[in-house]
């Protein structure tokens, strides 16, 4: 069997709204290997969360999806909803941004953590309970016998986030999709999230981190993809990316980080309804030429690729 766990090819999502079609994802293609931490970084509103939802098949009902998502060799984008339910939580789990919104406030945390085990692993009530206790203990939710009987509002934010990771990993998934795990969280809590994610990743679980936090992506990931206005414009290994980003937008994004002097990117983000013609970054790009009005090619290089005419 090959090493590729998730393969996304030619995925496009558009969402019809009152003002016109929002082209949230355009021709996304990437693959995640087993045991790999892959980050998708970009500004808010660049379509990265929609891409995550498209992989999980949790898009809003009016969204128009096209393309192919393969997980472990099976094409999950073609599965029926019933078959998909067997995969969600079992092979791919997702961790939402706000744990208070993602957990059911009326069900005890222990029951919620045990649910994927009961549903996907077919464990009996007793086995699931014992395993839940072990999982809570593993994530420092102590004492598990007391904590499993509590409701989400009795937990602190950091603890509930850990409980949610426990729930996500309950059925031993091979891939976890985490959507903005560090948004609005202070540095110490962010470090804690990084620590528990690394704990899970060290046991062989692959991650797709969807984030706008460049520092977090840098600390966590093996490979990085940059998303701009619905398109993935660059994919590279972490070290290569931070040493020398190729796409002009990647360069501008890294220069905007406080460590590099907070240089703002000129211009403003384009509308997702009327996207710029050709290269989507060309109105703000310092290197733009005539040819940028045509769609830029995806240039493949050794272990990285970039969507820009400069490298064609």
């Amino acid at each position: 069997m090959s090493d590729v766990l998730l393969k996304v090819s030619g995925v496009s999502v558009s969402i019809p709204t009152g003002q016109g079609n929002v082209h949230a994802v355009d021709d996304a293609a990437f693959s995640i290997n087993k045991h790999e931490v892959f980050s998708l970084i970009g500004e808010s509103g660049s379509g990265k969360s929609i891409l995550g939802q498209a992989i999980m098949r949790l898009l809003p009902p009016n969204a128009v999806f096209s393309g192919k998502v393969e997980l472990d060799g099976t094409e999950i984008s073609a599965l029926s909803e019933k078959e998909m339910q067997k995969i969600r939580g079992k092979t791919v789990a997702s961790i939402a941004q706000n744990p208070y919104l993602a957990m059911n406030p009326g069900i005890r945390v222990g029951t919620q953590v045990a649910e994927p085990m009961r549903a996907h692993l077919g464990l009996s009530k007793e086995d699931a309970k014992a395993r839940t206790r072990r999982a809570l203990k593993y994530f420092d939710i102590l004492p598990p016998e007391v904590r499993e009987r509590e409701y989400p509002f009795q937990y602190s934010g950091g603890m509930l986030q850990r409980a949610m990771v426990a729930m996500g990993t309950a059925a031993d998934p091979e891939l976890i999709i985490a959507d903005e795990p560090t948004k609005g969280v202070d540095v110490l809590k962010r470090r804690n999230i990084a620590a528990i994610f690394q704990k899970v990743a060290s046991e062989g679980c692959a991650f797709l981190l969807i984030t706008h936090d460049v520092g977090f992506a840098r600390a966590m990931s093996d490979r990085i993809a940059v998303n701009y206005c619905g398109q993935i414009i660059e994919i590279a290994g972490k070290d290569a990316f931070f040493k020398e980003p190729l796409h002009p937008y990647s360069k501008a994004l890294l220069d905007a980080v406080p460590e590099r002097g907070m240089h703002p990117i000129p211009g403003s983000s384009p509308s997702m309804i009327e996207v710029p013609e050709g290269c989507r970054f060309h109105p703000r790009c310092p290197h733009k030429t005539e040819r940028c009005l045509a769609d830029p090619p995806v240039v493949e290089m050794a272990r990285r690729c970039v969507r820009c005419w400069l490298y064609a």
Binding site: E43, S44, K183, G184, H212, D213, V214, A252, L253, A256, V257, P258, M262, H263, P264, I265
Partner: peptide, 9 residues
């Protein structure tokens, strides 16, 4: 609460 590029701006 803002993105890095907006924050820088």
């Amino acid at each position: 609460m803002l993105d890095v590029s907006v924050q820088a701006f």
